[in-house]
Simulated scan of single mutants.
Amino acid sequence: MERQLGNKLILVGFMGTGKSTVSKLLAGRLEWERVDVDEQIVSRAGQAISDIFAESGEEGFRDIESDVLASILADEASSVIATGGGAVLREANRNLMLASGLVVALKADAAQIIDRVQSDDARPLLQGDAANRVNRLLEQRKHAYDFAHITVDTTSLTADEVVAVIMERWGKGKQQ
C-alpha cells in the first residue's frame, strides 16, 4: 500500500515532536526537496507567524496555512513536507494530505515536548505558562493525528532513529 502513496512524505504532529529536524534528514536520505509549511507561510506573508497571529488571529493564520499547504501538495516535485502542528485541525487539510502522499505522525510525551519547546518564544500558542499550554493543547488534540498512515513516537529516539523507523515502515528501509 505505502509504495503507491506517491512522491510526497508529509510529517504531522504536535509542536516539538521533531518534524523540522526529521524532515531535513528524510529529504537528504530520499534525495527529495524539503518543504517546511511554516517557513513557506513566513516567506509568502512577509511576516513572522507570531505577527500573523497577532494581526489576523488563529483563524486567519489557519486560512493562510491551508492555502500554503494546498499549493505545496499540488507541486509535482518529490518532497518531504513538515507541517505546522495545527495543520491537521481542518478536515480539508487532512483529506488533502491523505490524498497527496504518505502521512507520518510524530508524537512524543508531554514532558519531552515541554523540554523541547518551553524556551521557544516564536510559538504564539505557547505564550504564558508553556507547560500548562502544552498539556491543554495535547488534550485538545489527542486524536488529531490519528488519521496518519504511520505514527512514530519520538520520545526516546534520535532523529536518525526516527528516520530509520519511517523508512522501514514505508518499505524503503533497505534502500539508500
Rank of each mutant, 00 (worst) to 15 (best):
residue 138 L to Y: 00
residue 121 D to S: 02
residue 17 T to C: 14
residue 80 V to G: 10
residue 57 G to S: 15
residue 18 G to W: 12
residue 92 A to P: 05
residue 19 K to W: 08
residue 161 E to M: 15
residue 113 I to M: 01
residue 100 S to R: 04
residue 54 A to K: 14
residue 73 L to K: 04
residue 18 G to V: 12
residue 139 E to G: 02
residue 87 A to P: 14
residue 99 A to P: 14
residue 29 R to E: 09
residue 118 Q to I: 01
residue 17 T to E: 07
residue 70 A to S: 15
residue 69 L to E: 07
residue 4 Q to H: 10
residue 172 K to D: 14
residue 61 F to M: 08
residue 76 E to C: 07
residue 52 I to M: 11
residue 133 R to Y: 01
residue 47 Q to I: 15
residue 120 D to Q: 12
residue 5 L to I: 11
residue 73 L to V: 10
residue 126 L to A: 06
residue 45 A to M: 13
residue 18 G to E: 08
residue 159 A to W: 02
residue 132 N to T: 03
residue 159 A to D: 11
residue 112 Q to D: 13
residue 111 A to Y: 01
residue 38 D to R: 03
residue 175 Q to S: 15
residue 18 G to D: 08
residue 149 H to E: 02
residue 169 R to G: 07
residue 27 A to F: 04
residue 62 R to K: 09
residue 140 Q to H: 01
residue 14 F to L: 07
residue 168 E to A: 15
residue 155 T to H: 02
residue 159 A to H: 06
residue 120 D to K: 08
residue 37 V to P: 14
residue 120 D to G: 00
residue 70 A to E: 14
residue 57 G to Q: 15
residue 156 S to I: 12
residue 84 G to F: 04
residue 38 D to H: 08
residue 141 R to C: 00
residue 169 R to Y: 06
residue 25 L to E: 10
residue 161 E to H: 08
residue 37 V to D: 09
residue 124 P to H: 02
residue 10 I to L: 06
residue 111 A to E: 14
residue 120 D to L: 08
residue 95 N to A: 03
residue 173 G to S: 12
residue 45 A to I: 12
residue 136 R to L: 10
residue 37 V to L: 13
residue 114 I to V: 13
residue 83 T to R: 03
residue 71 S to T: 14
residue 22 V to Q: 09
residue 59 E to R: 08
residue 47 Q to H: 15
